[in-house]
């Protein structure tokens, strides 16, 4: 991982080698403004994360002495914790849904709304609104839409005699929730992509248009490749969101009865009265390992790019 004195080659055109010479003032500025976030990150994020990894090999209720138990927690999680495997499955379904449906939809809206059209601001606002809602509103909206006996969806479908149990039926509630999740995620992706589209040099598009490309061609051949870093960003965010997914199911029924997710299991065990911190930390480590698969893929990507 050590990045040895590689030439700081500009990405676009390799030109004469630039020698970075920082003045003492530059070094002071960098030391301060890089130092603070790095210290915070190490002390408040990585320190506790490593502590959690260590705790995952122990049994601890947050109060009495910490007792080392080796791999017991892991063994218990995979063999003696019924919600675990459903949670893993749900997280992967989540990832698939966000990656295949919600994220592309967000990109699509961003591209549509980046054009010079009337009411663009209104459309953007409508799609973005769900992002700002707090947990309490999300929980209420889920109840209001999906309640079996009093909800709007069953009423609108006219299913009052034989209502569908959108939240209570564990075979369908994951999909009910994913609709709400998509509803929020689309606005989020749209916003980030809109900002990315702003950086595309309009002359590129004009040139493509002069060459006779239609809008779709322009987007896929010119804009999309030019936004490669932003595309990667959106991809990574989708992965993060899918693996960390928590709040919507938690607001609905605390992530039970068919809505289990890894982060909910972690929370159930760590946060709350009389916790099983070692056990919860072990679930977190498993989640971290799953994340690592994606990090490594990303890393390879980054370094391949470097070498090129």
């Amino acid at each position: 991982m050590t990045i040895t004195a590689r030439p700081p080659a500009p990405r676009t055109t390799p030109r004469r080698r630039r020698v970075i010479r920082f003045t003492p003032r530059d070094i002071a500025v960098i030391g301060l403004l890089l130092g603070i976030p790095v210290v915070l990150d190490v002390a408040l994020i990585w320190g506790p994360t490593l502590a959690s990894v260590a705790l995952s090999f122990t049994s601890w209720n947050g109060v009495t002495d910490i007792k080392p138990v080796g791999l017991d927690n892991y063994h218990n999680i995979v063999s003696n914790y019924p919600p675990f495997w459903p949670a893993v499955r749900h997280n992967l379904v989540w990832l698939l849904f966000l990656g295949v449906v919600a994220t592309p939809l967000g990109l699509f809206f961003a591209v549509l709304l980046d054009k010079q059209i009337r009411f663009s601001r209104f459309y953007q606002t409508a799609i973005y609104l769900p992002v700002v809602l707090s947990l309490a509103v999300i929980g209420f909206i889920a109840q209001l839409l999906y309640s079996r006996d009093y909800g709007a969806v069953n009423a609108a479908l006219g299913r009052t005699d034989n209502p569908i149990d959108w939240i209570g039926d564990p075979s369908i509630n994951l999909w009910s929730v994913l609709v709400l999740v998509g509803w929020r995620h689309v606005g989020y992706v749209m916003l980030l992509y809109l900002a990315g589209l702003k950086a595309v040099d309009p002359s590129l598009k004009e040139a493509a248009a002069i060459d006779g490309a239609n809008e779709a061609q322009t987007f896929f051949r010119v804009v999309f490749p030019a936004l490669r870093p932003v595309n990667i960003l959106i991809l990574v965010i989708t992965v993060i969101e899918a693996l960390r997914a928590f709040d919507v199911v938690y607001a609905i029924n605390r992530g039970r009865n068919g809505l289990e997710l890894l982060s909910v299991l972690i929370t159930d065990n760590i946060v709350g009265e009389a916790s099983r911190i070692g056990f919860g930390s072990a679930i977190a480590v498993i989640l971290l390992l799953i994340s690592l698969i994606f990090i490594v893929t990303y890393l390879l990507q980054v370094f391949r790019e470097d070498r090129a």
Binding site: G47, A51, L262, I266, I270, S275, S291, I295
Partner: peptide, 19 residues
């Protein structure tokens, strides 16, 4: 970059107790 990004992969609940 990787150190900063990777810190965000875990749900924040994990950090609760040590913090």
């Amino acid at each position: 970059l990787i150190a900063f990004t990777a810190g965000n992969l875990l749900p924040q609940q994990v950090l609760a107790t040590p913090l």
